[in-house]
Amino acid sequence: MIKITNLQKNYKDFSLSISLAVPAGTVTGLIGKNGAGKSTTIKAILGLIKPDGGTIEVLGADPRHFSSKDKENLGVALSDSGFSMMLSIKEIVKILRKTYPEFDEKFFLEQCKEQGLPMDKDLKDFSTGMKAKLRVLVAISHNAKLLVLDEPTSGLDVLARNELLDMLRNYLDQDNERSILISSHISSDLEGLCDDIYMIHKGQILLHEDTDTILGQYGILKIGEDEFAKIDQQYLIAKRKESFGYSCLTNEKQFYLDNYPNIVVENGNLDDMIMIMLGGK
C-alpha cells in the first residue's frame, strides 16, 4: 500500500530521512514527539510536499503525480486541516457526493447520527471531539483502500478516543485488504490498533517493530548501579539514569527473567519505551 525508500526532505532547521512500508491489510502506527517528523512524512505520502530525495509509492503511484482515481482510494484525516468551518454536515454531504463516486451517503448519515453530530450546525460550533469524529467519518465513507490519519485522536478525551478507534476497527472489518497508516503521540491508541509501529525522532526512524513483539518481548529493567555493572548488557537497547540507578529497555525480556530472577522486569509498553529511547542517556 505504501512504500517509502530513503525519503529525504530538508527544511532550514529540520531534516527528514526515513524508509517505511505499509503492506496491504495492516495497520501501521507512526509514533513520536511533536515535531519528530510524523506530519512531514504524512504530507509526503499525500503528495503535499515535494521530497528532496528517495522514492514514495502509494497504491502503486507516485503521490506527486496522483490521478483523481488514485486519490479516490485514499481516505485522509489531518489534525490541523479540514473542510471550511463555515460549512455544516448537510453541506459537506453535498460536496462529498460530487467528490467521491463511491461516497456512501447512507452510511455517513447513519454514523453522524450515531456519533451525535448535528447536521445543520456550522463546523465552527462543533467541539474538538465532534470535529475529529467528522474528519475520520469523511475518510472512511467512500470505500477507500488506504486510510492516512494524522493525529486523529489529538485533543480528545478517553471516551471520544475509544469511540474513534472503534470506528476505525469497523472500517477494517469490512475488507481484509484495507490498510491504515496512523500517526499519534498517544501510545495507548496505537498499542490497541496497530500491527506494527515505527518510532520516529528528529526525522529518523529509531525503531520498527511488531506491536505483539513490543508487548510480548520488550521489557523495562529497573536496576541499581551496582547490579547494572554486573549484568549482561548485550540485549539492552537503551538506558535512562534514574534516582535508584537505571531503567533499561530490552527486547529480550525473557533472558533477564530467566538469568536474573532478582531484577525487576516490567512488561514493555510504548510510553516507557519512548521515555527511555527519546529521553535516555
Binding site: 499525500l46 503535499l48 485514499l74 485522509v76 490541523d80 486541516s81 471550511s84 467521491y100
Partner: peptide, 21 residues
Amino acid sequence: SYDTFDNGMPFLMSLPVSGKT
C-alpha cells in the same frame, strides 16, 4: 481566501483533485 483559512489547503489537496484542477 476561505480555502486558506484555518489551514484548509492541505485537506483540499488530499481530495481527488489536482493543483491543476
